[in-house]
Design a binder for these strands. Structure first.
Length: 423
RNA sequence: GGAGGGAUGGCUGAGCGGCCGAAAGCGGCGGUCUUGAAAACCGUUGGGCGUGCAAGCGCCCCGUGGGUUCGAAUCCUACUCCCUCCGCCA
C-alpha cells in the first residue's frame, strides 16, 4: 500500500507513477472516499467525545446518589446516532480499503521508464557464452535421454507442468538447495529459516499477492489457507505486526521452499522443460532494512544472488526492469537472466526487489528509531536462486558432446564428489 | 478426535460494570551521586487514527468478531491461538 497521505496530498505524483507503469487508475474515486471517510470520522468522534463526558457525569451523579435518568435518556439517543455513523463509516472504509489495496507501488526514481519488458535495461553482464563444437541440446532432451527428468510420469501422477526428478536429477536439485543455503548463511550472513508452505489470507495481503492476484494462487478447500507462490510471503510476514529494534536491522533471512503457482496467464507458454511449473523449488533471500539505506541493500542482495552463478561459473546478465514491467508491490527490481545455450536465450533465474514501505505498511512491520519514534521498515527480497532453472542452466551450459553433464566444481562436494554424470 | 485451563503494555503480573490505556515489579531511556562503573535515589517509558505549522486536543485499541448495558479489560456469545491430560500418529 502506498502512503494514504501521499495519495491525499500529492495525487498528481501517484497518477504520474501509475501512468509510468501503464496502469490507468481513477484517483478521484479514492480521494472522494478518503474525504468521506475523514468527515465521518470527525463527526462520530465528536459525538463519542460528548458521550464520554456524559457518561462520566452519570457516574458521578450515581456515586452521590442523585438522579441521572434524563442524562441516561440523552445518552441513549446519542448512542443510537453514533451507531448509525459508525455503520456508514464501516461501509466507506471498506470501499476505500478495497480501492487502495489494488493500487500498485510507486516506482523508484532510478527505475527506467518504459512500457514493458522491451524497455528493461541491461546493467551488468558476467562471463560469456560458452562455445560448443557441437549443437547444444535443450535440457528437456538431455534430461530425457539421461532419464533424470521425467515429465511424462509427472503428468500421469498429477498433470501438466509438473516434474519428476530421478537419480542424478533429484540429486542435483537437492545439491543446489544445500549449496545455496550454505553460501548465503556462511558467506553472506543470512539466517536460515524453514517456514510453513501454506499461509493465511492476512499474510498474502501483507505482501501484496492478495486481494489482486487470487487467481494465481492455489487455495485449500474449506480453509482460508493458500499454498505459497514464493517464500517471500511467509518469510516477510515473520515480522508482521511487530516493532523491530533499529540495532537489529538489517535482518536477513534465507529460506528454501517449494513454490506453487497456477500460471493462469501462461497457457501455451514455456510448456516444455523446467521453465514454468506449477511447483518448483526456490531459495529465497529476504531483508528488512532501514529506509535510508534500502536501495544500497538491494544492490548487495543482488550481489548475493549473483554470487551463486559466479560460483557455478555460468554466464548471465542483469536487467533493471522498466516501469512497465515492474511487479505490483515492487518499487525497483533487478532480474538476473541466465544464459541457456540449448535454447539460445537468456532466462530469468532471479528477481531482486525493493518494496520500499509498500509491504511494511500493509503488514505493519515497523522499527523504533533511536529518537524513540516508530517508522515503517523497507522490505526486500530476491531469489537466490530458483532451483529448477539453475538445474536447467547447469544441464545446458555443462553438457558434453556425448550427452553427459559435467558437475560445476563448486557443486562437487554436494554430489558426493562426482565430476560428471553419467560417470 | 475427547476433557479441562488460559490469552492484559518490551517481559512478569494485578484489575469491584463507572477518570483503567490500565496497579506493581522487571527491563529500557534520561538525570543525581561517582575518577569511571555498580548500587541507591529521582524522573520518564505502548500503538493506531483524526485535527493542527507546532505545542496540543480528541477518538480507538486489554487475542478477534458479535451481543447485553446509559456505560465493558471486567458480563454473555462465536471464532482463533496457546498450555495440560487422554487417544491417534511421522
Amino acid at each position: 500500500m502506498i502512503d494514504p497521505k501521499v495519495i491525499r496530498e500529492k495525487p498528481e505524483v501517484v497518477t504520474e507513477a501509475l501512468r509510468k507503469r501503464g496502469a490507468a487508475f481513477d484517483i478521484k474515486q479514492v480521494l472522494d472516499l478518503d474525504e468521506k471517510r475523514r468527515s465521518l470520522i470527525q463527526e462520530s468522534e465528536k459525538k463519542k467525545s460528548e458521550k464520554n463526558e456524559l457518561s462520566n457525569e452519570i457516574a458521578k451523579l450515581r456515586k452521590s446518589g442523585a438522579d441521572a435518568s434524563d442524562k441516561i435518556e440523552h445518552l441513549r439517543t446519542l448512542g443510537k446516532s453514533i451507531e448509525t455513523l459508525e455503520q456508514e463509516l464501516r461501509v466507506v472504509e471498506k470501499e476505500w480499503d478495497d480501492a487502495v489495496l489494488v493500487i500498485p507501488n510507486i516506482p523508484h526514481s532510478s527505475v527506467p521508464e518504459g512500457s514493458g519488458e522491451e524497455d528493461n535495461q541491461v546493467v551488468k553482464v558476467w562471463g560469456e557464452k560458452p562455445v560448443f563444437d557441437f549443437e547444444p541440446q535443450a535440457h528437456w532432451d538431455i534430461g530425457e535421454k539421461l532419464d533424470i527428468l521425467d515429465f511424462k510420469r509427472a503428468a500421469k501422477i498429477t498433470g501438466s507442468r509438473f516434474i519428476l526428478y530421478k537419480s542424478f536429477g533429484a540429486l542435483l536439485e537437492r545439491a543446489l538447495i544445500n549449496f545455496m543455503l550454505d553460501l548465503h548463511t556462511r558467506e553472506h550472513g543470512y539466517t536460515e529459516v524453514l517456514p510453513p508452505f501454506m499461509v493465511n489470507r492476512e499474510a498474502m495481503t501483507g505482501t501484496g499477492q492478495l486481494p489482486k492476484f487470487e487467481e494465481e494462487l492455489f487455495k485449500l478447500d474449506g480453509l482460508d489457507y493458500f499454498l505459497i507462490p514464493t517464500a517471500e510471503v511467509p518469510v516477510t510476514n515473520i515480522h508482521n505486526n511487530e516493532i523491530l529494534k533499529e540495532d537489529d536491522l538489517p535482518i536477513k533471512y534465507v529460506a528454501y521452499t517449494p513454490c506453487f503457482r497456477k500460471e493462469a496467464g501462461a497457457h501455451g507458454k514455456d510448456t516444455r522443460g523446467l521453465t514454468r511449473l506449477h511447483q518448483f523449488n526456490k531459495v529465497e533471500l529476504v531483508k528488512f532494512a532501514l529506509p535510508e539505506n534500502s536501495y544500497d541493500e538491494l544492490e548487495s542482495l543482488l550481489l548475493d544472488a549473483e554470487d551463486v552463478l559466479k560460483k557455478l561459473n555460468v554466464h548471465y546478465r542483469v536487467s533493471a526492469l522498466s516501469t512497465g514491467d515492474l511487479g505490483f508491490s515492487s518499487s525497483k527490481t533487478y532480474d538476473i537472466e541466465v544464459w541457456l545455450p540449448g535454447q539460445n536465450i537468456y532466462r530469468e533465474i532471479s528477481s531482486c526487489s525493493n518494496f520500499d514501505s509498500f509491504q511494511a505498511r500493509r503488514a505493519k512491520i515497523r522499527y523504533r528509531k533511536g529518537s524513540g519514534k516508530v517508522d515503517l521498515v523497507h522490505t526486500l527480497n530476491g531469489s537466490g536462486l530458483a532451483i529448477g532453472r539453475t538445474v536447467m542452466a547447469i544441464m545446458e551450459n555443462y553438457q558434453t558432446q556425448d550427452g553427459a553433464i559435467v558437475v560445476p566444481e563448486a557443486l562437487r562436494p554436494y554430489v558426493h564428489g562426482m565430476t560428471k554424470f553419467p560417470s
